[in-house]
Write a protein that binds this DNA or RNA. Structure first.
Length: 418
DNA sequence: TCTGGGGTCCTAGGACCC
DNA sequence: TCTGGGGTCCTAGGACCC
């Protein structure tokens, strides 16, 4: 058994660099939606001491002084670049698990030849075909491949590929890696492990598994076993999502019901599109609205409401209708709302449920209508056809003042060379 | 003025069943 | 004095991931 974890370095920042080669050695950061905080940093930006999650409004001055290139997040670009990376990897490895927008596991079992060299080949090919730098970690379990990848990123002299199949090499790394670097061990667990004397990955690997299960959970027990080279996690090839969530901060605080209605209709439409893209129906829907969390003295409120659906559906009209009904029930005047959320639950494949003889019937032609709308929007651009409740240029739209062009998905925004 | 947006899995506890 | 035993399902909350 061997796995590789392939991970793009500072993915969002690297995507921006692909189309601006002069930023090669310049520190780059990418901001969250609404230009809220820093969510991606290049090595140079990290060296300047810019932390993950740094609020932009507090750091703006310094970033400018230091000559940091700052971008709003451009998910159309990142999504497309991610698809290119994954397609490249799928051409190299027979079994690939896309783990996140910038990471994938590959099953190396049975692949001929030198695996480390194969890792190098993957790096080179992704670099040549997409312009994105990646690191490769190799190990007998997924958890060790993850840790190997961390090592490849941390020590540049490894050449971007670290192979942990050799037990001696493994021991050396496990002893110097803090337990918090291990996949599945976050801040809280690290703090609870410390009193037991578990500080390094090595400590965790050699702690009694039964005790770990009793005091923590079966998940941590598996992690410890995986660190010892005993596989407990398999490669999971694409499975449909079990929940779909669309939630956004508004570009500014909203007080009245009307604009919040527009926003929720828009979020529910987006969620419905994601739902149809994976070919599922939603059995349940939930909406939530909340005030800001950070302003001291400002009254806080958070309303959450499950909204019944007449039948499992992917019809935008039905989902928007249910969401707006839920909104009426939780909206309270007098608050400064900052965020709304639509959550689709109880997802299932078409035909995977038993209809109710007496329940309302889906509207005739709904499937064809939705399919047609999706097709037109795919050709003409998102939102070309939408419900009348969803404005083209809403007043509550998020702030994205530093957004780059959609180089790969929009004819009007292609890179021009003169 | 200004602090993200997605997901997953596990566990405990309560309701309910026979 | 004394009041069963075993199971399922659902939900909320907590941890983690990127």
């Amino acid at each position: 058994m061997s796995y590789a974890l392939i991970d793009c370095n500072a993915f969002y920042c690297s995507c921006e660099r692909v189309y601006r080669p002069w930023l090669k050695d310049v520190p780059v950061v990418v901001l969250s939606n609404n230009d809220g905080c820093v969510i991606a940093r290049t090595r140079e930006a990290k060296r300047l001491g810019i932390p993950m999650g740094a609020p932009y409004f507090q750091w703006r001055q310094r970033l400018r002084q230091w000559g940091v290139a700052v971008f709003s997040s451009n998910y159309e670009l990142y999504g497309e670049m991610s698809a290119r990376v994954m397609a490249t990897l799928e051409g190299l490895f027979p079994k690939v698990e896309v783990y996140s927008i910038d990471e994938a596991f590959a099953d190396l079992a049975g692949l001929p030849g030198d695996l480390e060299a194969l890792g190098q080949r993957a790096r080179e090919r992704v670099w040549r075909w997409t312009g994105l730098p990646v690191g490769v970690g190799i190990g007998p379990t997924k958890t060790l491949a993850k840790l190997a990848n961390w090592a490849a990123k941390t020590w540049g002299k490894c050449g971007g590929v670290v192979d942990l199949r050799d037990p001696l090499r493994r021991e050396r790394l496990l002893r110097i890696a803090e337990v918090g670097e291990v996949w599945g061990v976050g801040r809280r667990l690290s703090a609870r492990l410390a009193p037991l004397g578990i500080r390094s990955a090595w400590d965790l690997a050699h702690f009694e598994p039964a005790t770990l299960r009793r005091h923590f959970s079966v998940v941590l027990e598996k992690t410890a076993r995986e660190l010892r080279g005993i596989p407990c996690l398999e490669l999971e090839e694409a499975a449909p999502r079990q929940t779909i969530c669309t939630s956004r901060m508004f570009g500014r605080r909203l007080h009245e019901l009307a604009p919040i209605r527009e926003a929720l209709a828009s979020y529910a439409s987006t969620a419905a599109e994601k739902l149809r893209r994976q070919g599922s129906l939603a059995g349940a829907l939930q909406v939530a609205i909340r005030t800001g969390m950070h302003a001291p003295g400002e009254p806080r409120y958070c309303g959450v409401m499950p909204c019944p659906l007449p039948y499992p559906t992917d019809d935008t009209r039905v989902l928007v209708d249910a969401a707006l009904r839920g909104l009426e029930a939780i909206y309270r005047p007098g608050f400064a709302y900052s965020k709304a959320e639509v959550l689709l639950l109880d997802l299932r494949r078409r035909g995977e449920f038993t209809g109710d003889l007496f329940a309302p019937r889906p509207r005739p032609g709904a499937d064809r209508l939705m399919a047609t709308i999706d097709r037109i929007n795919a050709r003409q651009g998102r939102g070309s056809i939408r419900l009348g409740r969803v404005p083209a240029e809403p007043a509550w739209a998020m702030r994205r003042e530093l957004m780059s062009q959609r180089y790969t998905t929009c004819w009007d925004e292609l890179l021009q060379v003169s």
